[in-house]
Amino acid sequence: MNAELLASLRTITDEEKALLQGNTSIQKGIYTSKKDFVIDNERLLAKGRLIEIRPHTRFAHFPKHRHNYVEMVYMCAGSTTHIINDTDRIVLEAGDLLFLSQSATQEILPAGEDDIAVNFIILPEFFDRPLSMIERDNVLRDFLISTLSGSGSRITYLQFRAKDILPIQNLIENML
């Protein structure tokens, strides 16, 4: 990854500063107003936007939650550990991608200073046009259709090891 971009992503956010100063838990009010921990796209997306990118919050355990959007996590450096649907322990390493549907639950163990990930917050309607271009028998297409239709599917997340796939790395860097 481009060194300048990675240095920018390493910048400690205000939320992370509060965590380092002793406030040891995630401030749920940043992410939701609901009693259940469902991260709300309206808290993270500017009005009228279909996609937003934000750095993953480090230094704290991110408790079990869901999203009301599709989340894509890209691991830029280091690693993070995710517990998906209470049972699947996924370790993302540099170059890995993780897609989560709205029905997946996710818990994230604390990330250190050098564990740099970015979260893509994506509204389902973002996929309307690209979905029509994906071939029929494709796991990504099946994942998107089940996510967008809200139907219960056994596919609630997809993980891709993309560390050595230069076009994917370039695409992510350009998006960032």
Rank of each mutant, 00 (worst) to 15 (best):
P55V: 10
Y157G: 08
I145Y: 07
R136E: 14
I165T: 13
F37S: 10
L6A: 00
K64E: 13
S132E: 12
S153G: 15
F120I: 00
L6F: 01
A94E: 04
E135R: 15
S146R: 03
H82W: 07
D14Q: 03
I90C: 01
F143K: 11
L144V: 10
L19A: 14
I39N: 06
I108R: 04
V38F: 07
M133G: 12
A104T: 03
I90F: 03
T32D: 07
E4R: 01
S132K: 11
Q21N: 15
I51G: 02
I122H: 04
D114M: 09
L5D: 05
G48A: 04
E93F: 09
F143M: 10
L50K: 13
L9W: 00
T80C: 04
R141E: 15
T80M: 07
R10D: 01
I121A: 05
K35C: 05
I168A: 08
Q159F: 09
I134H: 09
F143Q: 12
R54E: 02
S25M: 12
M72D: 03
F37K: 11
D115E: 05
I165A: 11
K163S: 10
D88S: 11
S8I: 00
Y31W: 08
S79C: 04
R136N: 12
N170M: 09
I121T: 09
I116V: 12
N23D: 15
D96W: 03
T105H: 00
Y31V: 03
H65F: 01
I12E: 01
S33D: 15
L19G: 11
T87Y: 13
L123S: 07
M75E: 08
E52A: 04
K64Y: 07
N68D: 04
I12D: 00
K28D: 01
L44T: 12
I145N: 06
G112F: 06
L140P: 11
Q106L: 15
L97H: 10
L109H: 15
D36H: 06
R129L: 14
Y157S: 10
F99D: 01
S153Q: 09
T32H: 09
D14V: 00
E113H: 07
E52R: 02
P130R: 14
G95P: 02
C76A: 15
V139K: 15
L158I: 06
P110D: 13
Y69L: 10
D164H: 13
T87D: 15
I145P: 01
M75R: 03
A104C: 08
E15R: 11
R43N: 12
R66C: 08
P63M: 14
I53Y: 10
F37E: 10
R89Y: 07
S103V: 02
P130K: 15
Q27G: 08
I90K: 05
K34A: 14
A3N: 01
L45Q: 08
L100G: 03
E16A: 04
L98S: 04
G150E: 08
V70I: 14
L144G: 09
R154P: 06
L50I: 10
